[in-house]
């Protein structure tokens, strides 16, 4: 019994999640001590609400990285699909519910994702190159064909969805309030579905398998090309979902406002212990890492760190985080030392 305890602890200590969790906790406590504001109900709800969009993006990025790829096109993809959707709905003067926005945006997202998936899965081109390229293409379409300008009003259904809340938290001391948006349900549902998919379907295990060794996956009988293609379609849809939620919550559609998010999102995923080389990582770690980034982005201000220092802070976190996982790999590969026998033994 005792040994099994030991091995369990050993196994846990080799994973990244506990460390991320500890860093997260330390940061929260630090902010709480300095400001007394962190664990207030309104701040927690604010953070949860700020996590929705980055969280969805991170789930998509996580899936791609697990499969051994990388996607830098999701902000452009999300921007394009949600911008086109909003513009179209405004043009036809749509007065109905938000569902149509989701249907259209997710369809466009699937199509754009299929574009990535075709080149990466079927033509076997490197994911970084393809998504760098498609990112430019998506931006180009937005600026060229759609002549994108900021849309200051959005269709009524989207507006209503963006302002509806599950509950409102009120800080009894300061009187500040925070809303928990209905969109948080979408995030939780996606999270649960992706968790189940990764754990209980051969498709999900195939994504891990391909990330571990594509050749082995092929020989074992996984449909490598189809899996990758489907994966990018799926990721395109998740990104578009995030895009719609973002526009609804901001109550306006800004064509470039999401661009550039990819680096912090990928950083969060990697901080959470997902191996950039593919095959290794958990959804829990991915969310913890993203949460860490979100808190740094939103709460440093509470302890009086000027916003200009934010990127320095995030940068250091990334270096420490990735350094820690590199160190773990090194520790695992370290030359096993051998027992030197005493002279008398011979």
């Amino acid at each position: 019994m005792q040994t099994s305890w030991k091995t369990t602890i050993q196994k846990i200590s080799r994973r990244n999640e506990p460390y991320v969790f500890l860093v997260l906790l330390a940061l929260c406590i630090l902010i709480e001590i300095r400001s007394g504001q962190f664990f207030s109900s309104n701040n927690l709800v604010d953070i949860a609400s700020a996590l929705i969009v980055p969280g969805l993006f991170a789930i998509g990025a996580f899936l791609v990285i697990i499969s051994g790829g990388i996607d830098v096109s999701f902000p452009a993809l999300a921007s394009l699909s949600v911008y086109a959707t909003t513009k179209f709905l405004l043009d036809i003067n749509y007065q109905g519910g938000v569902w149509l926005a989701f249907v259209i945006a997710l369809s466009i997202g699937a199509l754009l994702g299929a574009f990535n998936g075709l080149f990466i899965g079927y033509f076997k081109l490197p994911a970084l190159i393809v998504t760098l390229g498609s990112s430019s293409v998506f931006k180009g379409i937005m600026q060229g064909a759609l002549n994108s300008k900021q849309l200051t009003t959005i269709p009524v259904g989207m507006r209503a969805f963006g302002t509806s809340s599950l509950f409102i938290a009120k800080n009894p001391v300061s009187g500040l309030t925070a809303r928990m948006p209905v969109a948080s349900i979408a995030f939780v549902i996606v999270l649960i579905l992706v968790y189940l998919m990764m754990r209980y379907t051969m498709f999900g295990r195939g994504i891990y398998g391909i990330g571990g060794s594509e050749v082995s996956a092929h020989r074992a009988g996984f449909g490598v090309r189809k899996t990758k293609f489907t994966l990018y379609v799926m990721v395109g849809m998740i990104a578009s979902l995030a895009g719609v939620i973002r526009v609804c919550m901001m109550q306006q559609a800004h064509p470039t406002n999401m661009l550039g998010m990819e680096l912090n999102i990928i950083a969060g995923v990697v901080l959470g212990g997902t191996a950039i080389t593919g095959g290794r990582g958990t959804l829990l770690g991915c969310i913890l890492g993203t949460l860490l980034i979100v808190i740094v982005e939103n709460s440093l201000i509470l302890i009086g760190v000027p916003t200009s220092w934010k990127s320095v802070f995030i940068g250091s976190l990334i270096i420490i985080g990735t350094g820690a996982s590199a160190f773990q790999v090194m520790r695992m590969n370290r030359v096993k030392s051998i027992k030197i026998r005493s002279k008398e033994a011979f």
């Binding site: 295990r205 398998g209 990330g211 571990g212 060794s213 082995s216």
Partner: peptide, 11 residues
């Protein structure tokens, strides 16, 4: 059985 054994090191 191929030389690389066709295994998934991450699983």
């Amino acid at each position: 059985i191929y030389q690389d054994f066709s295994v998934f090191p991450n699983l």
